[in-house]
Design a protein around this nucleic acid. Structure first.
Lengths: 346, 346
DNA sequence: TTGTAAGCGTTATCAA
DNA sequence: TTGATAACGCTTACAA
């Protein structure tokens, strides 16, 4: 820590602490000479105002926190993090803010929230969001939620998962597929879809809605459901499980791109051609999606915009002039080459 | 900001502030009953200790800063950021730290440094590193430099750019190429290589060293040099410039993968086959490198390890028990498919 | 234009 | 096992 403090400078310069403070924050209130003198002394002694002390009195830190439910390495590996942070970053740049990534502290969200010196939080896809938001409330710092069920009193941003999922499933159905496996992100409730919540629930609802339009439903025979972790390995596992059965679906609808890509790899290894023998559609439109072979048909969400909006809403909330608003951002189906058409026998 | 403070709790609970503080930080020094009582009151009033005030007295923030020379969006777009942050994140997770990304504040590194409430900085590829490090010194916060010329008194981490570049160029030369264009990252000194410094200089030195082994040198005819910005567009521009001339090189050696990939795109558009008609080698081994077609031969650096080492060194420095050490991390040539062999006529 | 003094909300020291 | 009180380093009314 920098040894020398404002009093040292004041003493050395033969002025008051106030004068020193002014030299930095309100130079126009001092004569040019004084300012120059003070700054020179400060320079000599290598003085820099302590930002923590300053924050204690001013009440703001100049940084906003992104509260994430997993350790930093996992968060960073998340393929849609970059674009999201880019959006937040745009606002930070404009407003001269720093960005703090706040993961659970020794496993505890509560501790993380209590210790972070930030002017506000953007929470991302919280899991135990109710408990966490209670802590957030208690901490008294403004926050905006992203990707969790909206909560009263705080702005929220979500994407239209249901429409996205419906569009994806519709696309597959419209291509003629009637034997479909849904690969869901592991829920913790073991494929009891009635207990799904959050993103999982909305996406599942979307799938089911599209199926219903075609008078189909989860019947474990033609339309089946399997959960796997949202990783490449998870997708590979999913494919293998599905392919074990004697009857193979003609299409797999995956709840995340990374699962879909895992499926594609496993299919490649098994000699199953995509999209000729197996169609697949993902969700998220991660950067990899357009690069795999064949390019993956998937659902895209406006990630950068999401981050930007989150940051903007947060700043408004911090400024105090905001009625909490709830936003649902539109998604779009990105049709590439991973879904093939099946000729329906009349 | 949370309204209620430690005094409110103390008053309401009928104890001193000290007791309240202990209830949180040294519960073992209080009777169980008192602790329980205090915590209950705190819970009722929704009290949470103010982290800023705490930091002011304890002297540590529990967060480390990554000081970057560009606005956050640009930094995030940098394709080797994720792995680097992952490495830092590993350490953060283990130690229970948060991570702050500290970009220039309204264009000023000085302001950024002065305002960031962190226990230490990891500086990344600073440009005006001398001035910046002076400020860092003045601020009195420990720091570790990554990708800039080592400075006395602070640990540093660099990669062996020179060896990496030499390996890349050697590979091209060994494949028989003798007409080579070097695509350098724009320097600001307009291809006056004697004024290059930092990464740029080391990589260039490596290229030149390899050329020398083959009795070649920058002669603008067989071996040429061109600068471009380190983006896809920069690479596309580079290719076009090079292809304008009547005599085309058989290989392009690019100082970054993203430039190389830009070249590949432009070559594809121009109908130039890689590696049959043009070989190319990059630098960095970004995730995209293995995904492009053909996969890009390039130089890889241990990014995660770099981040991890940086964080570890920083923590040691913060702890005070560290002799500043300077590290040069090894690189490795990753041979893929973008360099073709030329038959040398005897 | 400059100075005095009262916070900001903790933790740390020392005493009881 | 608890409490008074002094830091921590700054900003900001208010005064001069």
């Amino acid at each position: 820590m920098g040894r020398v403090n404002i009093s040292d400078i004041a003493k050395k310069a033969g002025v008051s602490k106030t004068a020193v403070s002014f030299a930095y924050n309100n130079p126009e209130r001092l004569s040019q000479a004084t300012v120059g003198h003070i700054l020179k002394i400060a320079e000599e002694l290598g003085y820099t105002p302590n930002p923590v002390a300053r924050t204690l009195t001013t009440g703001h830190t100049g940084t906003i926190g992104v509260l994430v439910p997993q350790p930093i390495p996992e968060i960073i590996r998340n393929p849609f993090m970059p674009k999201f942070l880019e959006g937040i970053g745009e606002v930070c740049t404009k407003e001269g803010l720093s960005l703090m990534i706040v993961p659970p502290l020794k496993g505890s969200m509560r501790r993380a929230i209590e210790n972070a010196a930030v002017d506000g939080f953007i929470t991302l896809g919280l899991e135990e969001y109710k408990a966490t938001m209670l802590v957030l409330r208690q901490r008294g710092v403004p926050f905006v939620t992203v990707d969790s069920d909206p909560i009263e009193g705080a702005p929220s941003i979500n994407i239209d998962d249901e429409s996205g999922a419906r569009a994806a499933m519709r696309h597959v159905l419209a291509a003629g597929h009637r034997e479909i496996a849904i690969l869901a992100i592991r829920s913790g409730v073991q494929a009891h879809i009635e207990e799904y919540h959050g993103t999982l629930r909305y996406r599942m609802n979307g799938y089911l809605a599209a199926l219903e339009e075609y008078h189909l439903t989860l019947d474990r025979r033609r339309i089946s459901l399997l959960e796997c972790v949202s990783t490449e390995k998870g997708g590979q596992f999913g494919f293998r499980e599905i392919w074990k059965k004697k009857r193979h679906p003609s299409a797999i609808v995956a709840m995340s791109d990374i699962i879909a890509i895992g499926v594609m790899e496993a299919a490649l290894n098994a000699g199953v051609k995509i999209p000729e023998e197996l169609s697949i559609v993902g969700f998220d439109d991660i950067p990899l999606a357009k690069l795999v072979n064949p390019p993956l048909t998937t659902v895209a969400q406006p990630l950068t915009e999401k981050g930007k909006l989150a940051a903007e809403l947060l700043l408004k909330t911090i400024a105090g002039n905001a009625v909490p608003t709830h936003h649902i951002l539109p998604i779009s189906l990105v049709i590439r080459k991973s879904v093939g058409v099946i000729e329906r026998r009349a």
